[in-house]
Design a protein around this nucleic acid. Structure first.
Lengths: 111, 111
DNA sequence: AGCGTACCTGTAGTCAAGCTAGGTGTCCAA
DNA sequence: TTGGACACCTAGCTTGACTACAGGTACGCT
């Protein structure tokens, strides 16, 4: 009986990750941190959502992964946006904006 | 190979239906029509999404159903928002707004 | 009379995405 | 030496939106 369910709205996560990665290569853990930080703790992406999402994005060739050293000297998988990924990001942002507009219309107009 | 995928974002549909019904009792078919009309054809809710959603809402006691005559003289199931449903609508709208704000933050800030 | 179309409801089965819960291992500070 | 932050991963569940059906009524057109 959870009082709260966070459940990121479906499909949003991909866009957010792409957007974060668009600003420069980052490893998964850091991506989640940035999302949380920028969104002022709204997005707290569980690892069970994060890593499958990253693998999905990689499989679709929207990002590319490479093992590199982090600033703390350890290894981590850094993700870089591909050209395809940049295209996809545009599509998703546009889609999001249209959705948000449509929802907004309903919420404002429906009574 | 669909060029386009519409796929309503998860959970949005419930909110939209509640909002439409909040303006007064309507039957399922008419709800879908209103959504489409108000959103300028953005939302074209397939019946395989619509009816399961309505049954879900009814089961959760956010709406109540009653068979009545339509303006054209035929029978249809009219859905009315319950008190619980009104509460839920508030929750969902608030949730949506928070999500939209957070997404907007990411999209604006992330680079 | 027959035919199509809009109206109106419904279900079965599939699929995708996000979740919980578990696991591995490193490094550092208390 | 223990705990926590860092960093990765997977299995299995749940949920909701979809496709593709299926059924029925009323009306207008030819």
């Amino acid at each position: 009986m959870p009082l709260e369910k966070n459940d990121l709205h479906r499909g949003t996560l991909d866009m957010l990750i792409l957007k974060i990665v668009a600003a420069g290569p980052l490893h998964g853990y850091a991506i989640a941190q940035r999302l949380q930080q920028i969104s002022k703790d709204y997005f707290q992406v569980p690892q069970g959502s994060l890593y499958p999402a990253l693998h999905r994005l990689e499989e679709r060739e929207w990002v590319e992964a490479e093992w590199k050293d982090t600033s703390t000297g350890r290894e981590a998988k850094f993700y870089t946006l591909t050209r395809k990924g940049r295209k996809q990001l545009e599509v998703e942002v546009l889609g999001w904006e249209k959705l948000a507009d449509a929802v907004s219309l309903i919420l404002r107009t429906a009574d």
